[in-house]
């Protein structure tokens, strides 16, 4: 992306983006915990996770990562296509 920034500005921007990425990662992680815990844990007769629950959580994590990756690819493609479309119109 041509940001029209000087080198110094780009360095500053990069630092901000790194912070944003950490924040983004925390959000993804948080939603994953929310979603997998909500979907997999429903038995509160014990305070320790059961094998069934642990298995469910582990599969949920794997599936969520695959979902994230797949949608990330689609998002990248669609976003690039949209950007191209917009440049044509201008």
């Amino acid at each position: 992306m041509d940001t029209g920034l000087t080198q110094a500005e780009n360095r500053e921007l990069e630092q901000r983006l790194q912070k944003r990425q950490v924040k983004e990662f925390m959000n993804v992680f948080g939603s994953l915990v929310d979603n997998c815990f909500t979907s997999c844990v429903d038995d509160f007769t014990s305070k320790a996770m059961s094998n069934r629950e642990n298995g469910c959580i582990s599969r949920c994590v794997l599936k969520s990562m695959s979902t994230q990756t797949r949608l990330g690819e689609r998002f990248g493609e669609l976003n690039a296509a949209m950007a191209q479309e917009m440049q044509k119109r201008m």
Binding site: C36, S39, C56, R59, L62, K63, T67
Partner: peptide, 10 residues
Amino acid sequence: VDKTYREGEL
């Protein structure tokens, strides 16, 4: 995505 998570792959 099915919420029962019987499988770990999509």
